[in-house]
């Protein structure tokens, strides 16, 4: 079994990290990088990128691996889409990832805030590639269609784990509902790139992961990420195993033989990690 891997930090990036944080705090925005204690935060902030988390930092679902607080969230702030767009301009982002907490308390499950945020970014920074990483919107077709009509470039929705572990780790969610969300996006508009991801080290085995990859192919998902689960604090689900780089490589090889999803696998891979760079690579791989 592999030991816990080491994330390298480049201290010379510290001033850029400070600057990115200042912009984010100044505009009173949240990022999953900070809320999730992501080990890549220093690297990403240091290259002036971040994954914005909209509609607050309190979530209506309580997934066992996640450190975002569960509870009753505040009403979404109407000025937030404009502030996100402002951050995109200030940080000069060529590729932005917008995610959110799950908002089961809202009639629209929060989809209009995504739509407004996409609209504001398009207005202020038309050249920016917009990636949204969304909750399942209850699997409601019209809400997913609303999002698709707003034309983000990429719609991501993470499966997070294998079907068998949902009852334990995502008791408020359903693996098959999540698959159907990604499937619906492709049905509504095949030109939108779809993306999903899982974490490993939660109790699954290699065959389980390959089973998920088959499901991903079935629904024509374009990009799939696999990364090591790391416990955010002592309060979350424990790490069952540390996956070694050979196993991650085997997933990439299997993916190559499956000829559909572009798979990115590695210890510190997260669905939003180097999202711009991997999206470019994916596009090149499609041409080739």
């Amino acid at each position: 079994m592999a030991v816990k891997a080491v994330k390298r930090i480049d201290l010379s990036l510290a001033p850029l990290v400070e600057n990115t944080r200042r912009v984010i705090k100044g505009l009173k925005l949240h990022t999953i990088c900070d809320s999730g204690n992501c080990p890549n935060m220093h690297e990403c902030y240091g290259s002036s990128t971040a994954t914005f988390m909209i509609m607050g930092n309190v979530c209506t679902r309580d997934c066992r691996f996640c450190s975002v607080k569960n509870g009753k969230p505040q009403e979404p702030d109407k000025t937030e889409p404009g502030r996100v767009a402002e951050a995109v301009v200030k940080l000069n982002l060529k590729h932005v990832v917008i995610t959110s907490v799950t908002r089961d308390d809202q009639d629209d499950k929060g989809v209009f805030n995504f739509v407004e945020t996409i609209r504001e970014i398009r207005k202020r920074s038309p050249g920016t590639v917009i990636e949204v990483l969304v909750p399942d919107f209850g699997g409601i077709e019209e809400l997913i269609e609303t999002l698709v009509r707003a034309r983000p470039d990429i719609i991501g929705h993470n499966l997070e784990t294998i079907a068998r572990l949902y009852y334990l780790l995502k008791p408020d969610s359903s693996y098959f509902r999540s698959l159907s969300v990604l499937h619906m996006v492709k049905e509504f508009n095949p030109d939108i790139c779809t993306k999903s991801g899982i974490m490993v080290g939660l109790g699954e085995n290699e065959d389980d992961v390959i089973e998920v990859m088959r499901d991903i192919k079935e629904i024509k998902c374009d990009i799939f990420t696999i990364g090591q689960y790391l416990r955010p604090t002592g309060e979350q689900f424990e790490v069952k195993r540390h996956v070694d780089e050979d196993e991650f490589q085997r997933y990439e090889v299997v993916a190559g033989s499956m000829k559909y999803a572009y798979v990115i696998a590695g210890t510190f891979v997260r669905s939003s990690y180097r999202a711009g760079e991997y999206y470019q690579k994916y596009q090149e791989s499609r041409k080739g």
């Binding site: 994330k7 390298r8 480049d10 204690n37 955010p232």
Partner: peptide, 15 residues
């Protein structure tokens, strides 16, 4: 030098 938090292990290089 290397150090760790609850979540991960980190390493830094000499500048």
């Amino acid at each position: 030098v290397e150090f760790y938090t609850d979540k991960a292990n980190f390493s830094v290089k000499a500048q």
